[in-house]
Amino acid sequence: MKIKGKKRTIIRAVIGLSSFFLIWEMIVRLGIIPRNRMSPFTEVIATFIRKITDPTPDGATIIEHFLTSFSVAFSGFVVAALIGVPLGMMMGYNRYAKAYANTIFEILRPIPPIAWIPIIMLLLGIGTSAKIFIIFVAAVVPAVINSYTGIKRVPEVYINVGKSLGMSHFKIFTKICIPHALPAVFTGLRLSLNTAWVALVAAELLASTKGLGYMIQIGRVLAKPEIIITGMIVIGCSGAVMSGLLGLFEKRFAKWSRK
């Protein structure tokens, strides 16, 4: 029964997806939307396969674009995690740390990452470091907030157990609070990764010479919708894959939270 049910779900997903592609293909092939504004599905697939090795017309293969985008997004994400997680945890554990950092954090937090782009471009130009900084600004916020709440939510009784077992404040923090907060931290990191990816594409749309955001921007300039859509699909799939990889990490390090 169970296997049969699973099979059915897969079949339905395939039917749903193929009808979507079919309708898309028909709309363009029948000329409902003109070819210079939208490409049919099959052409996008062909473009994707061609772009794996062909750098024209936008100057780089899709693999080069992906690697450029990925390395920038990943660097920004790592910096955000390395700074954001400890910062959030300290704010959660120590009320003085919170008092110092909270106001400034609350003021900076609602500024959309994209609104940082002009000032960062003035400060750092349009190079890689500028993009990493934009991604950092975007990704650090969920890392801090979730690490903070993760620590805040440690039940008081666990801290009392720690005291009762003769643990020092430092040990209570490292051996009780951090393990307890890990699932929340991972939730934060997953959100960070998503935001990092979103911010990256935004940054590349504005100023870059390579990368997936640049690729779709060139697609628009050259009026080549197949390039735009290929880029969009790669952006979507890579985001999903990265999120999945982080999920595997989470399973490994915070498996106790799973029921």
Binding site: Y158, N160, L165, P179, H180
Partner: peptide, 17 residues
């Protein structure tokens, strides 16, 4: 002194991880 005693809490308070 703290090291002379130990406490058992209402809600078990075992570390779930």
């Amino acid at each position: 002194r703290e090291e002379d005693l130990c406490m058992v809490f209402q809600r078990y308070a075992l570390f779930p991880w």
